[in-house]
């Protein structure tokens, strides 16, 4: 099946065998191939080089490539596993795997910790959270006085920073998330269960003889 497509995948640096990617993730082979359809569409939206750059991810998230956003930048940096400034197909599948409904909760907690630990010190610091709150207010055009922001931070750190050293470590984050499970909602994408029906064209481009469901 799909022999006429067989050379096109060479245009995708970092392309990995769907069977292998499936064996390392919660995705079936068909789901990995459906994700490739999504990857092709995002990675060709600005520069057709088989890789996703920051502008392309922003465009996919906001339908507007000029809208620079701190959180989209964080997602990009975490998906750019090899820190090459671009996301290849293997990075894309492995990163999305954390968002699969069946992915281990532990992986979701660790990913969310890294998301908020912007400078990678191993702690979520008050200043980082304040920067993110300010970015959110800018993005959503919500208005809050500085003292209100400080009040929210006081309350949050009072609850999360158990040893009150001004920063949240990984174990404090685990406990905080356990008490506030809604914080992990963004870490699960129900869409990933239906990826083969969202991108049915994968069937025509499949390089696998028997498409597993």
């Amino acid at each position: 099946m799909g022999c006429f497509q067989s050379t096109s995948r060479k245009q995708f640096p970092g392309y990995e065998d769907p069977v292998q990617l499936s064996s390392q993730t919660a995705f079936s082979v068909s789901e990995v191939e459906a994700l490739f359809e999504l990857f092709k569409s995002i990675s060709s939206s600005v520069i057709d080089d088989g890789l996703i750059n920051k502008e392309e991810l922003q465009l996919a998230l906001f339908k507007n490539r000029k809208k620079e956003n701190l959180f989209a930048n964080r997602i990009f940096d975490l998906f750019d596993v090899k820190q090459k400034g671009v996301i290849d197909f293997g990075d894309f599948v492995r990163s999305l795997n954390v968002f699969h409904p069946n992915a281990p909760q532990e992986d979701k907690i660790n990913f969310s910790f890294k998301l908020y630990d912007m400078d990678g010190t191993g702690y979520i610091e008050r200043l980082e959270v304040k920067q993110m709150l300010i970015a959110l207010l800018c993005e959503s055009e919500m208005k809050l006085a500085n003292e209100t922001i400080e009040m929210i931070l006081d309350k949050t750190f009072m609850e999360a920073d158990v040893d009150q050293d001004g920063k949240i470590d990984k174990s404090e984050w685990h406990n905080f998330v356990a008490r506030n499970p809604s914080l992990l909602k963004i870490m699960t994408l129900p869409y990933l269960r239906d990826i083969t029906t969202t991108f049915p064209s994968f069937v025509f481009n499949s390089e696998v003889d028997e498409v597993a469901t």
């Binding site: 998230l61 930048n73 959270v129 993110m132 959503s140 209100t148 929210i152 309350k155 994408l189 969202t198």
Partner: peptide, 27 residues
């Protein structure tokens, strides 16, 4: 709009569009 101050900082942050990856799947 005024942000709901009863939410903790992370609840507020997680409402960002930049963290809403479901938009990747919307054609």
């Amino acid at each position: 709009p005024i942000a709901p101050v009863t939410m903790n900082a992370f609840e507020l942050i997680s409402t960002s569009q930049g963290l809403n990856l479901s938009s990747l799947f919307e054609k």
